[in-house]
Amino acid sequence: MIEDIMELFKYKEMLKNLVRKDLRTRYKGSFLGFLWTFINPLLMLLVYSIVFPYLLRIQEKNYAMFLFVALIPWMFFSTSLQNGVNSIVWNNGLIKKIYFPRLILPIATATSGLMNCIYSMIVVIISLMIMDVSIKWYVIFLPLLLFIQYLLVLGFCIIFSCINVYFRDLEHILGIVLQAWYFLTPVLYRVDVLPKNLQFALKLNPMSALIISYRDVLYDGKFPNVMSLVYVFIFSIFLLIFSILIFNKLKIRFAEEI
């Protein structure tokens, strides 16, 4: 595994190019091009800020922002996983013809998801200021949260990408699972609306700890729960190691099975 990581380091230029290519071609052919990276979250914010205050009676003062700070990291999670599961299969041309550390592909997907999330976070912070949600110094935790979430996303991308080569249904199953997962993560609501025993179950979900922390840091302006972050961090590290081990087992027949 150490060797693998050393080798990955040698191929960092490839990773950089893959991520750049992905970011640049995501909105390929559209008139606004790369600007969509920023416009997309803004439009989403617009929709939420119109829909929720008028259609639903929600007590939250600024529900649009309440939702927005959680939705952006959630979208980082779900889009990365959905792209990550296909990262090997979609690049079959490369896999069949060229040697490079296969791990680069899921890593590139997770990384371009992260980059996209960082760009969206700029929009989030600007809109927080405009929408009059005072930003406290706890914002400095944001990079840490992004980092931990990146590790988590990485682990999932790696493990799903290699299993999907042998079991193509995973892609479709994941779509449904992510939808359920979305509702099991406090993106739309606060945890305390749930009964106590369910609250505990929710805490086992690594994404819920992350979403709560994002909201603490950006919206509520308070210190994130360190214990739950440590839990997510350890979870992510174990997932990552486990996923690399699985990946190394499965990568041997990639070129033949694709």
């Binding site: 040698k10 191929y11 960092k12 230029e13 290519k21 013809k97 060229i98």
Partner: peptide
Amino acid sequence: AGFHPDFTGRENIYTNASILGLN
């Protein structure tokens, strides 16, 4: 390998050469 049609020749040199393992 990895050529993208919308990128220029120069950009594709970077992508392709990096896939071949150059920094």
